[in-house]
Design a protein around this nucleic acid. Structure first.
Length: 428
RNA sequence: GUGGGUGUAGCUCAGCUGGUUAGAGCAUCAGGUUGUGGCCCUGGGGGUCAAGGGUUCAAAUCCCUUCACCCACCCCA
């Protein structure tokens, strides 16, 4: 806010400062730990990719590709894009690195920043962070269950409760097309067409499925009898879906099915799911995913079934903040050195090095301030001990150690060779 | 991209329908203790009142533009 400072953070981006960075680290650690427990290995792929990867992978009809990508042209005239999501890159790497020749099934996860040029608001940023998991090569319903349970477990271990799992199956592209046509017919009938809202009139043309997201009460009334995707699933689609639900039932993972749940990416087939919260307002999806059995083929690979999900870290952290579920445990310093006078200050680098070499966290005052101010600083940093080094101590060959928790003081030899971690461990 | 709201100190916010040098709490720094933190007391620093333009004798206050943030639409994590 310094008026002279006229370079600003881009809209929808954030600085994660030292006071909140520990929350991020903790969340990421939890994600990595659970992923490892489920047998998923980390994959790191470029933040910048050829634009065609997303045009073909994410799908040219999606909002992401049509209006939300950060695309630039490099000096060679190539069109590059800052990744808006992770799945296409994972599939690209899977084929490019010939992973399909090494093993039939791959379980991979990623974690990192994504970029979307949307209007920022709560729970939606232009640079945001996702973790995601992909299980490539398996078609059985139990692999869907594996992924949903993985998401469920991670969210739970992150401390997120009161989240609702919503399940749907959108079947094959053919089923969806049939459904679409019926829906258009249903909404285009005379007597209906005039009663739906303007937005929905437009949706009927662009993407009829979207009418199911409308909140308008008269639209909702009409839509109660609208055809839903479940009526168009093939026997195999329906059997697959039933088995996914049965798998979740056996594990007592609660869910709601919603044949009207719509996802905005082109590549989904059969199972789709979302974990939703009621803490975030409009941006209520904390994790979303589904099966994408045709995506590998669209990149020229062999027919390869797959399932995946992605989850937004900002939204998760925002939820935790709402519920107070991220109690801060401020890091405590072991020793704060209070140096008085030039001679003492000259010695502090060695003293610090010795302490740090012993594995103790330590710091000192770099402003040449009075003892009072230095102790205040020691207090602020949560130091357990203050090591007071002044002319008196140097003359005596013994330094003063102050126990910040109870104010008690003792002395230790000035000779650092004689130091042990024991003398810096305050009595409990 | 569209609609609505907001923008005053580092942070959270007062400042009524325009009227003298723009305030509080917290934070910060200093003093009360010439070498002893947390509590308390006293004092200091810190604002082109988001930016730019306009109306007016007079603008933090009214108008316009831009920017940022928030909410909703759209869509998604």
């Amino acid at each position: 806010m310094n008026p002279k400072m006229n370079i600003h953070r881009l809209p929808g981006t954030a600085d994660i400062l030292p006071d909140v960075a520990p929350r991020w680290n903790r969340a990421e650690q939890t994600v990595r730990a659970v992923m490892a427990r489920f047998g998923f290995g980390e994959i790191r792929f470029p933040i910048i990719e050829p634009t065609e990867l997303f045009a073909r992978g994410t799908g040219s009809s999606t909002d992401i590709v049509q209006k939300e990508m950060y695309t630039l042209t490099d000096r060679g005239g190539r069109s590059l894009t800052l990744r808006p999501e992770g799945t296409p890159s994972v599939v690209r790497a899977y084929l490019e690195e010939n992973l399909n020749h090494q093993r039939a099934v791959w379980k991979m996860f990623y974690i990192g920043p994504m970029f979307r040029a949307e209007r920022p608001q709560k729970g939606r940023y232009r640079q945001f962070h996702q973790f995601g998991a992909e299980l490539i090569g398996a078609a059985v319903p139990e692999s869907d269950v594996e992924l949903i349970v993985l998401g469920h477990t991670i969210l739970g271990e992150l401390g997120l409760h009161n989240i609702r799992l919503v399940l749907n199956s959108i079947g094959s592209p053919q089923a969806r097309q049939a459904h679409n046509e019926q829906l258009r017919f249903f909404l285009g009938r005379p007597g209906v067409q005039e009663r739906i809202c303007e937005d929905c009139q437009r949706r009927v043309q662009a993407n009829p499925l979207r009418v199911f997201d409308c909140k308008n009460t008269s639209c909702l009334e009409i839509l109660r009898d609208a055809p839903t995707i479940d009526q168009f699933l093939t026997g195999e689609d329906a059997a697959h879906f039933a088995r996914v639900r049965a798998g979740l039932d056996r594990l007592s993972v609660p869910y709601d099915t919603d044949p009207r749940m719509v996802r905005g990416l082109d590549y989904y087939t059969r199972t789709t799911f979302e974990f939703k919260t009621d803490l975030l307002g409009a941006q209520d999806t904390v994790c979303g995913g589904g099966r994408y059995d045709l995506l590998v083929e669209t990149f020229g690979g062999p027919p390869t079934p797959a399932v995946g999900f992605a989850s937004g870290l900002e939204r998760i952290l925002a939820c935790l903040e709402e519920t107070g579920g991220c109690a801060e445990t401020p890091a405590r310093l072991d020793v704060f050195i209070c140096a008085l006078g030039d001679r003492a200050r000259e010695m502090t680098p060695e003293l610090l090095s010795r302490l740090r070499g012993m594995g103790l966290s330590s710091d000192t005052d770099f402003l040449g301030r009075a003892l009072k101010a230095q102790l205040k600083e020691a207090n602020r940093t949560g130091a357990r001990l203050a090591l007071i080094v002044g002319d008196d101590e140097i003359a005596r060959g013994r330094y003063t150690v102050r126990h910040m928790d109870n104010g008690g003081q003792s002395e230790i030899p000035a000779d650092t060779e004689q130091w042990t971690t024991g003398i810096f461990t305050p009595a409990a």
